[in-house]
């Protein structure tokens, strides 16, 4: 093998950068949509809402038991057909690869975040709910001001791990012919035959971003740490 030549990486920086931006955007959207929707799904299960609670449980179980790549395929091929039938003329309505990626990641991550929040809700001491009742707090205020802040604090390390996995999973969008960071590197590597250099650099970038995220969350937890509260 020839000696390593990283010059190709520098030439490719703009392309890699656009791939990285796509990965980060997809991670950010899926995180926000997933966490908000996941919290709602967890609350529906927590309140044991009739019928809907069971449907949600089924949805979460389904999403957690099939690979993301398969969900992406399904969404990409099936949803246009379903939309076509709903529209009446039976002709598939394409929603495009980018929309497919954002929607699918959001819905998929919601299932995982909802499990994290659901377990967190169960971990809150019953006395906290009783104290809210005794103070006549509404259900909304109970969850918004007392229960969820505690759940999010306790669950934040697991939420972070899940988000790092999410960031790595964005590379799966290659099946939709979208170009994320890994996809960009992959294409360039094959084009100019510098696979080792390209994959080395990409690994370092993934490592740097994931550790930066961990550090960031650790320092946030430290900054907002509450004396005497279990963590």
């Amino acid at each position: 093998m020839n000696s390593l030549d990283f010059s190709i990486v520098f030439q490719a920086l703009p392309y890699l950068w656009s791939g990285l931006l796509f990965s980060l955007a997809l991670t950010a959207v899926a995180f926000v949509v997933g966490l908000v929707l996941g919290t709602c799904l967890a609350l529906v299960q927590h309140f044991e809402v009739p019928v809907i609670g069971r449907l949600v449980r089924g949805y979460v179980a389904l999403m957690r038991s099939i690979p993301l790549i398969l969900v992406l395929f399904w969404f990409f091929f099936l949803v246009p057909i379903v939309l076509g039938h709903l529209g009446g003329n039976g002709r598939p309505v394409p929603i495009g690869a980018t929309w497919t990626a954002f929607i699918t990641f959001g819905l998929f991550e919601a299932a995982y975040y909802s499990e994290i929040i659901r377990v967190g809700l169960r971990a809150v001491n019953r006395g906290q709910f009783e104290a809210c009742q005794a103070l006549a707090l509404s259900t909304f205020d109970t969850y918004r001001s007392v229960i969820l802040p505690q759940v999010l604090r306790v669950a934040s390390p697991i939420i972070l791990s899940q988000t790092i996995i999410l960031f790595q999973d964005t590379s799966l969008v290659y099946v939709l012919s979208l170009t994320d960071l890994l996809g960009a590197a992959s294409k360039l590597a094959q084009l100019n035959g510098r696979l080792v250099e390209m994959y080395l650099v990409i690994a370092v970038v993934y490592l740097a971003i994931s550790s930066a995220a961990s550090q960031c969350v650790a320092s946030l937890r430290k900054r907002y740490a509450i004396a005497g509260m279990r963590r």
Binding site: N125, G127, Q128, A134, P149
Partner: peptide, 12 residues
Amino acid sequence: GMVFQSFNLFPH
């Protein structure tokens, strides 16, 4: 008003 055996203050 109610006071509990285990206080039940909001820790956060």
